[in-house]
Every structure is written in C-alpha cells, then in structure tokens.
Design a protein around this nucleic acid. Structure first.
Lengths: 215, 215
DNA sequence: ATTCGTATAAACGTATACGATTATACACAA
DNA sequence: TTGTGTATAATCGTATACGTTTATACGAAT
C-alpha cells in the first residue's frame, strides 16, 4: 500500500493468513471470504485472491469454483501420507547434509535443543522444531528440497500444535533430536537417516491416531 | 469468459502457458509480460497474474518484484536436485503401489510401453513416459504424493524433451521400463525400488551433463 | 569517451466497478 | 409437514482504470 513496503501486498496477506491457519486461529473448513479479508486488511480483493491461490498450492486452503475458499482439512490418512513424504525427503536431505556439516552447525543445533527444553508454548515449540530440522538439512545445499520440506511441514504444523497441547510428547521428541544430532556429529549417515525416518513416521502415526480418536 | 466455461479463466491461461513452457515454445529467461499475454488471450491482466502466481509455485516461472515474470531456468545442479527428489518420492510411491496393483494395471502399463516404442515425437514421448510412471504410482492411493511428483516431473520435462531430440535414449529407457514393470508383476519391491531409483538418477545425470556440455 | 542525472515510455500492482454464479429465504403446492 | 420453485441477497470472477515502479533514451558534466 505505502510506497515503502518492499514486499507485495499479496505476500503480506498470504503471510497473515498462513500464520492464522498454522496457529489454529482459523480452523479447518472455515470459509475465507475475499471481501471480508480484504476489508479487514484495508485492501481490495485482488491481492487477497492472489494470496489464496498461493496458499492453495501450499495446501493450506482449498478453492471451490465460484464458491470461495475454506481452510484445508486433513484426514488422518492425509497426515500419515504427508509424514511418509517427509520421511522420504528429509532422509535424503540429511544424508546429503551430514558430510557438509560444520562445527558451528552443531553448536547452533545444540543451542536450539536447549531452548526447546524450556519452551512451553506449543506454537513456538513447533517453530523451533522446524528451525532445528531445517538446520540439519541446510548444509545439503538443496534449496528446492528444503522448500518442499518446509511446505509439507507447514501443512501438518497445525495438527502438531494441537497434539502437543494435549499430549506431552516433548521429552521423547527431544531425546530423539539429541540422538540424531549425535549421529550427525559422528558422521554416521547409515544410522542417522533411519533414525530420522523413524522419528517422523512415529510422530505421524501418533498424530494421525490422535486425530482419529477425537473424531 | 463465456458463461459455459466450467473452468476458470486463470486456469485456462495457466494451462496454455504451462504447455508452451514444457514444449519449449517459451524458452528459459524469456520474459512473460502480463499485458501482452492478456491481450493475446483476449482477457484482462488479473486472471493472467493469478496464472503466473500458480506457475510460480509450480516452479515453472520466476517472479521479480515490480519487474515481471520470466520462464524459470534450471541449472544442471537444479536438474540433478530435482531428479534426486524424484527418486526419493517415486520409490516411496512405487513401494506402496506394488501391493495394490491389479492385472488391469499391468495390461495398461504394457500397452503404454508398446505405444512408446513407436512414438518418435519427443514431446509426446515425454507425455507418455509420465503417463507410464503415473500408472505405476496411482495404486498407492497417495494423491498428494502423486501431485508432488507430477510437479517435479513437469519441472524437468522441457529438458527431457530437449535431450531426447538430440540423443537417442529411448531404447535404454524402454529396457528399464520393461524391467521395472516385470519386477512389479513379481511383487518384488526389494528390487523394483532400487531399479527405479537407478533409472531416475541415471537419467538426471545424463541430462545434467548434457546441459553442462552445451553451455 | 564515460558517467551521471533526468525525462519519457513501458510494465507492474492494486482499487473500483460490474456481470455472473451460488446460496438463502420464503411462498406455494402436494 | 415436506418438497419445489422463485425472488433476493451474498459472493465470486473479471474488466476497466489509475497510480507507482522500473527500464530506456538522451543530454550534460567530468
């Protein structure tokens, strides 16, 4: 809007909607009306529409022809599918990253784990969790791969937050994080990747079951 | 435009642009001007913009703030990265699909291979090649996974077509296709998935090297 | 000659406006 | 009461219009 915003209005709206969806403020199947969002943000519908197109391809909203957009809902089967994809892609990323990891990477990863020990807010913990994983994968120097993983992660982040607020999974997750990090330090690709895969598919199953149980 | 088109104008434009990019009619780094495209299609800029946003997230175009869109260019490193991702995701899909394959699936897959034997047009061959691979993965019943694979495939399709018009890779690819299909018939997941991975990474390396050599 | 600044044109991003589609409410008939 | 048709409102999708940003051409200064 103002001449100084170096980022486009569409992207600002997409960021806000993304945040509201991931934090749970906007719930699955909730309709997202263009006029309403535009008015609330003080802009017109057009950047709003472009933001919705963006979020559609990210998998966070679903668009129906002439019937508007709703927040995407994921079935338990969808969640396990996404975690299976994550396991496939993240093991690839880790495998390629380990040979390139530096001492500084290990220090920062360890620092993140320690911060996570004390973080009680589920949403913030989830963000730190992503940052930890991303740190493990960045040394692979595969930007497209990282972006795909980020999108998959953000697809299930809502459910992770929801799960974490009900069940205390932190301790077990942290134990696995420390184990994986140690295997990275050792340069032990052969054990690190299956450990990561197990970490992810286990989490996926837990969350899918949780979703199923609560109906 | 007319009241009868059941698909949105944005999607029509996206389809046309996608086709023109994949077929090589629009070349890497070529600018895509909104006004020009809109005038050429006889519509306004707005659906054109939405189509470009869509194609951006598919990785086929790159958008620069206030400087418009260009057809995405992939470096050799990008191509190998995408093939590595494909190998990871497609082996997952195949592994989950094999237990669900039916006799009809095998018949149709074999039919596709035979059609491909006689197809000389590189673009059409590439489309048939995708159809063959998709057929192997559909029984997995993982729609999100299939969609991700489709996007990755379309990202490199241009370069595959380019490669195929210069180098005769058909015979070797067909041999590998027949081998993989036979392993699927046998229900031999343990051999089918590494064979598929080899098929893909080999193709990726060949195409990346080809790109590098021709500058 | 090269560099810098300015004017002009081209292209982008968004607000407004309007026709088309879908949902909702209500009357009427079975 | 229940179902069906129609009128009305709400919402979507796109064209037009306009201000802003970026690129290009040209002239002045070093």
């Amino acid at each position: 809007m103002t001449p100084l915003d170096s980022v486009t209005t569409s992207e600002l709206i997409a960021q806000k909607l993304r945040h509201d969806i991931l934090s749970g403020k906007l719930k699955p199947l909730q309709p997202l009306r263009q006029d309403e969002i535009a008015a609330q943000m003080g802009v017109s519908k057009i950047p709003t529409r472009e933001a919705l197109v963006q979020l559609k391809t990210e998998g966070l909203v679903v668009l129906h022809q002439n019937r508007g957009a709703v927040v995407a809902e994921f079935s338990p089967a969808d969640v396990t599918e996404i975690y299976d994809m994550r396991a496939a892609l993240e093991t690839l990323a880790l495998e390629r990253a380990i040979p390139n990891m530096s001492k500084a990477d290990f220090v920062r990863a360890e620092g993140l784990i320690e911060i996570m020990d004390d973080e009680r807010d589920a949403l913030k913990w989830s963000e730190l969790n992503w940052e930890f994983h991303a740190m493990l994968y960045r040394p692979a120097h595969m930007p497209r791969l990282l972006e795909h993983i980020r999108m998959l992660h953000s697809n299930v982040a809502r459910y992770v937050v929801h799960y974490l607020t009900s069940v205390d999974y932190h301790a077990e997750a942290q134990r696995q994080h420390r184990l994986i990090l140690q295997l990275c330090r050792d340069g032990n690709i052969a054990q690190a990747t299956p450990q990561l895969a197990a970490h992810l598919t286990q989490a996926g199953k837990k969350i899918a079951r949780f979703l199923k149980d609560e109906g």
